[in-house]
Design a protein around this nucleic acid. Structure first.
Lengths: 135, 135
DNA sequence: TTTAGTGCAAATTTTTTGCAAAGTC
DNA sequence: GACTTTGCAAAAAATTTGCACTAAA
């Protein structure tokens, strides 16, 4: 949570109600598409525009306050950086999404760093497959 | 490669030139978006339509002949099931895509299976992060 | 001949952009 | 007051759909 507002200003951006609203919505929703964020925001405030949501999500991501993954076909899913990191398991059969501890991926992340010099962002890691119920 | 044509018919589908062309294009292109598949197909045949490409890719995926991942923001990337399995490393900075050996992920895949009963499709596994050059 | 598949054009859905007005610092 | 940011409406992508026509079996 630190002081993102100060960081925002320090980088020459301005603190607007829209930005606070969008960030708050992402934090409350967990795995929300831009459209869902808009809906959430509009429960509190009126007149916020979809293009502002897109622009704000981009900005918040640049600031490291939110990140996104592709969980389903199509719409990206945003989540707040304040949540504990986790890896996603997406079942392609029943569409369920499970969050698991990222430590399971530690070995892979290390190997990839060692062998390919690649730095993995674990928050974007999603495994597609079949869940226990659908096997 | 087996005999997908026979399998196709056995399931009540028909073998059309478009289907052969789309499959061939995916096999030759490696990581192609529907739009790119269309372009490739049109180098050989004329008049194939984009909606046919979409419908065919869906069908081929259902048959297990191709699969898709989201490598970049936006368009899905299709590849043929005949290629060797591999995991993707996508650099969010320079947009480069590297293919690595899936054995690196074996540990993770096993752990996830053991602890969560989840069967991972390694072909859809993509790691986002920063590549060696961009670190 | 029967039924699936294709082309085409229009409709959707999702995201981006230009620009004047409004808001932040 | 200077310079960002927003809202709005229109543009651009990316997909999907309805339907008459064509073609595979």
């Amino acid at each position: 949570m630190a002081d993102w507002r100060a960081d925002l200003r320090a980088r020459g951006y301005r603190l607007t109600p829209q930005r606070e609203l969008v960030l708050q919505a992402v934090q409350e929703l967990d795995h929300a598409s831009p459209e869902e964020v808009l809906t959430k925001v509009r429960q509190t405030a009126t007149g916020v525009n979809i293009s502002t949501v897109y622009r704000t999500l981009d900005l918040l991501e640049k600031l490291g306050l939110v990140s996104h993954t592709h969980l389903s076909h199509g719409a990206p899913a945003y989540h707040a950086a304040t949540e504990p990191d986790h890896v996603h398991l997406v079942c392609r059969n029943c569409e369920s999404v499970t969050e698991i501890d990222p430590s399971l991926a530690a070995g892979l992340v290390e190997d990839v760093a060692a062998e390919h010099g690649f730095h993995t962002d674990v928050r974007h890691l999603t495994l597609f497959g079949t869940c226990a119920e659908c096997s």
